[in-house]
Amino acid sequence: MTRDLHSIVLNVNGDEVTVRVEARQTLAGMLRDQLGLTGTNLGCEHGVCGACTVLLGGRTARSCTLLAVQANGRSVTTVEGLAADGDPLHPVQQAFADHHALQCGFCTPGFLLTTIEYLDEEPEADPDSIRERLSANLCRCTGYHNIVAAVKDLLERRTGR
């Protein structure tokens, strides 16, 4: 069995990067260990908890159940790409802060990216559909209420209500 390294090129948070990875390296592992982007947290590591959610081509994907080589040629957005150091927070980050929608923060990067994809679809500010969408991510601190409130607020502000 070979342990050949594969050279992949991808756009991470706006920057083109070339990385050499083992085929078995997950996207999450590559982001964390090779690019130092440790904002993407690994929870369950088998596609259940949603902590490692990133945007792949603008859409959510679980970076623990995706090989880095599968992301070759694609664009990836992680939590680090939402607001540069020193810049104001991304509106979704700000809403999470305003609503105390995080405690330990471990799940938060995944929730932020799930929320960003959801807002892009311009849904109604309906708490049931917000909860359904957020059910893809597990949080063991907040009890979810404040996360739902943050997302609802974002939607209501968008529709001017």
Partner: peptide, 11 residues
Amino acid sequence: MIPAPFSYFAP
């Protein structure tokens, strides 16, 4: 948790 090593082909 990471898969055991394997060879990868993307035809």
